[in-house]
Structure formats: structure tokens, C-alpha cells
Design a protein around this nucleic acid. Sequence first.
DNA 1: GCATTTAGTTTCGAGTCGAAACAATAAGCA
DNA 2: TGCTTATTGTTTCGACTCGAAACTAAATGC
Lengths: 203, 203
Amino acid sequence: MADSTDRRLYDLIERLGTLLHDRARAPDDDPADDLQPVHVRILAYLDACNRYSDTPAAVTAYLGLTKGTVSQSLSLLHRRGLIDKTPDPDDRRVVHLALRPAGRDALAAHVPPATFRDACAQLPAGDRAALAAQLDGLLRAMQQTTGRSGFGLCHTCRLFRREPDGFRCGLTLEPLSPADSEKICREHETPTTSGAGAAHDDV
Amino acid sequence: MADSTDRRLYDLIERLGTLLHDRARAPDDDPADDLQPVHVRILAYLDACNRYSDTPAAVTAYLGLTKGTVSQSLSLLHRRGLIDKTPDPDDRRVVHLALRPAGRDALAAHVPPATFRDACAQLPAGDRAALAAQLDGLLRAMQQTTGRSGFGLCHTCRLFRREPDGFRCGLTLEPLSPADSEKICREHETPTTSGAGAAHDDV
DNA sequence: GCATTTAGTTTCGAGTCGAAACAATAAGCA
DNA sequence: TGCTTATTGTTTCGACTCGAAACTAAATGC
């Protein structure tokens, strides 16, 4: 019984994913500008991650791909002028990635897809919020079972410090702006005293 | 405000999809047996569709791909002995597809993934049911906005007939078994008097 | 009977993806 | 200091996805 609900749940998520990725391209779009779903997800990640997490290795871990695959997708995005690649001055093996304005535009054009926005508009706001909260719980459960932790919002981190003059990262000891504290960090550590009140700390 | 909820909702579904497709392969698996996500979705569709909907064209429409792509994936599945391909005796252009025992085994091994099942086990049954109901509403809304109708469960069809000696399809006029009536049909027509009570009629 | 439509296959090019080899750099340790 | 090991990212290879378009075969329309 629980089994059939689980199966239904899985089918729903898969089906929604299929419908979400359906090419709903405007007729005036140049096919050469077309981005694969994975490209869009990379752009979305780069838009949401902090300065410790904007590297190919972090993208690789977040999206669960191999570094070879990610390297190729990143060079495609770079070739098309959607992202910048900057060598790290301190560790010359490391590359920092950043969205260029064109990349930001491409992201806005694709996320969320127009069909999804329209579908949401048909649902009561309360339903949407409830659905988001429920999915949040499922995602958290998935992260626990897969052991794929290590990513989370900066300000929910065990090492996040609130100081008189602002915020600070307890790992790097660097100061953090309010914007920084809203971003995804690859070094995130979940607080041990996990109260049920902390919502939306999973990503 | 509704916009940020929508974005969050979209990100959650995408993220869940990523985690769902993460290769959680047992170490004793032969890489040659490995199936792409799209292969698993084809198997799941063939397991769930009725005898009017077991053709390459129906798979193509349901998954939103091109017929060339589907043709190749189907020949791969056929090559590996997971499906049968039988020419239609009445229309010799048409091919009927069916799961072989090995295909059924492969489907059971992949759907739902073990990680997903484990995650579900952590959630209260009530939450899961509520989540499924909410996602159902979202899926229905997506189908309306994308106009991608034409697929639905047989027994929820406008043409479905309950007769003294059983069920019957009002389109083909053929008799239907109870099992038939539970399957996905490509010719499905939504009843015009759409009461809010009919749940789970979308696929 | 001939044109049109439909079902499915084949072919092509761009790209994903995992695996493995590789180069460059950093870190650990004697 | 020098040597070994670990880490970051790129490159190469082969199998595969995917869309587009050409193509075959068969059914339908007039």
C-alpha cells in the first residue's frame, strides 16, 4: 500500500520532469542558441552558489556527473559567452566560474519554463506553498538516504557566525555579506541540533 | 511573491529529478546491462499502456521525443531482449511492443529506485499521500497549459462504457477487461463534465 | 489508379556521458 | 630540501541521446 503510493509519487515526479523538459521553444529562436537541460541547470547552480563553490568540481558534485562531462559542458557555455572562467590566484589548479550577463539572460529565459509558470498560475497559492513544503521534506529525506550532503544554504551552516559587524564563515574566517549568506555552499555542514523548524535549508 | 514560490517549486522538481537519476548502481552490475533513464521510462510506459497504445508512435507522443530517437531506443531494448516487436496483422505499417520477462525484471529493478524508496520510508504515510495528491494537481495543470492531452487512464475516458456484461471502449467498440480499464490509452478523451472528484485520471 | 497521409527506419551532426589517461599544481612527509 | 601522493581540471574514446531530414512501405482519399 505504501509501496503503491511511492510508485505513484515516483511516476509523477518523472512525468513532471518529462513535461518540464519538453521543448517549448519560441519559433524565432535560433537552434544554435539552444541549451540542453543540463546547461540550464549548470547556469542555475552558478547563479545560486557562493564564492567557495563556483568551481567545476563543485558543479560536478552538485549535479552528480563526471568531471569530464562537466568540463565539456562548461567549455561549451564559455564558447557561447555565457560564463567566465577565471584562474584562482592562490591555487592555480582551480578555476572560478561566473555568469556573464548573457548567461543570466539565458537562465531567466529558461527557468522556470513558461509552461510551468502558466500551470502554477492555475493552482491556488496555498496549494503551491504546501506542495513546495512537502517536496522540501522529500528532498531532505533523499539527501539523508543518499548521503549526498555537503551542499546547503550558507546561513543554515553549523559554521555560520553572526557577529556584531555582520556575518562570518567559521571555516574560512572570512566576512560574509547578507547576499553571501543566502547562497549555496559546497562545504555546508548541517547543524547537529537539527530542530524541525529550519525549513528550506536543503538544496 | 507567487513568482518566488514557483521558482522554488521548479528547482525542487529539477533537483529531485537529478537525485533520482543518480547512478545508484550495485557494484555487481554489468555496465553493458545499464539502462539510460529514457529506456526505463519507455519500459514503464509499455508496462502501463493498453493495446491501442503500445506502438512506437504512442511512445513518441507520450515521452515528447522524435520518432527517430524512439526508434533507436526501441531497437536497443529489442536487441537486449527486453521487449518484443510484433507487426500489426491489420495495418502492416504498425508495430506492437510488449515487455518481455527480462524487461519486466529490469523495470522492477529500476522503478522506483532504491534511494527513492528509502527516502519515502522516512516520511509519514499521510505526507506521501498528500504530496501525491498535490503533484497530481500540478500535473493536471501542466497538461492543460501544454495542451498535451490524449493520454489518460482508460476507465476515466469519455468513451468508456459500463455494460451489463463488463466494460467496452466506445471508440473501437471492443470489450475491455478490468485490467484493460486501468491502463493508459493514447486516445483518451477527458469527460466534459469535469467534476473535481475524479482524482488520478492524469498520467 | 494516383496523390496524399501515416508509421516506422535510417542517416547525419552536435552533444551528453562515463571511463580512463593525462598534465599541472599543491600538500604531505622524510 | 626533494620525493611521493592527492587534487583539479582537460583531453580522448566509445556508446548513446536527440532533432532534423530523407527515405521506405503501407493505408487512405478522391
